[in-house]
């Protein structure tokens, strides 16, 4: 019994029940399969994160994003006049997270690819693109680069989903996707 020492002192020599052998085999193979799926998806799947990331000083990153925004701003929006930035397809695009905003707003073209750079100026933030539901962790001092291709046009929210202090729930950004 489970509360007393095994009656058979040589319990490790007891043969296994057929059901046990069957289930262990199935569970083991299923594990191998699930492992294989992740590898397979890296080869043939379309949703994978790149391994591209750089160490970066937040101030330097901030300057890069400012320069990027200045170059491609098409209009401003909201009470705080956040620039809406429309970079050319295929280019490097930048967004930063800080207490408590995602900056700037991006305007992208449908079915075009962009290299999105993300980093934080202060604490950790969570880049949560909704409603498409892409979630990435954004760290200070790390510049992450992800190539993405919007496949739907419309207005997308960038929610912060990593707790970042008392204004966390007001931290919201935006990405517009327009047809060509």
């Amino acid at each position: 019994m489970a509360l007393t020492p095994p009656e058979n002192p040589h319990w490790w020599r007891e043969p296994l029940h057929r059901m046990e052998i069957g289930w262990i085999t199935i569970a083991f193979l299923w594990g191998l399969f699930m492992f294989g799926v992740m590898v397979y998806w890296h080869i043939n799947g379309e949703q994978n994160l790149s391994n591209e990331a750089y160490r970066v000083n937040p101030d330097v990153y901030g300057e890069k994003v400012e320069a990027f925004a200045e170059k491609y701003t098409v209009r401003t929006e909201g009470k705080t006049e956040i620039p809406v930035v429309k970079p050319p397809p295929g280019s490097d695009i930048y967004m930063l997270g800080r207490l408590w905003e995602w900056w700037p707003i991006l305007e992208l073209q449908k079915d075009q690819t962009y290299r999105l750079h993300l980093s934080s100026m202060d604490w950790q933030h969570g880049f949560s693109l909704q409603p498409t539901n892409i979630n990435l962790q954004v760290h200070p001092k790390y510049e992450m680069v992800v190539t993405l291709k919007p496949t739907k046009s419309g207005e997308f929210g960038v929610v912060c989903n990593e707790f970042c202090g008392i204004g966390h729930h007001t931290m919201l950004g935006k990405i517009y996707v327009v047809d060509k």
Partner: peptide, 24 residues
């Protein structure tokens, strides 16, 4: 969560946010 609602978040309506976003 599948609908995209964030954990550790006080206001899924984003009432006080400078921008707005509608959760389903």
């Amino acid at each position: 969560g599948t609908l995209g609602v964030s954990r550790r978040h006080w206001d899924m309506a984003f009432t006080d946010a400078p921008l707005n976003f509608d959760v389903p």
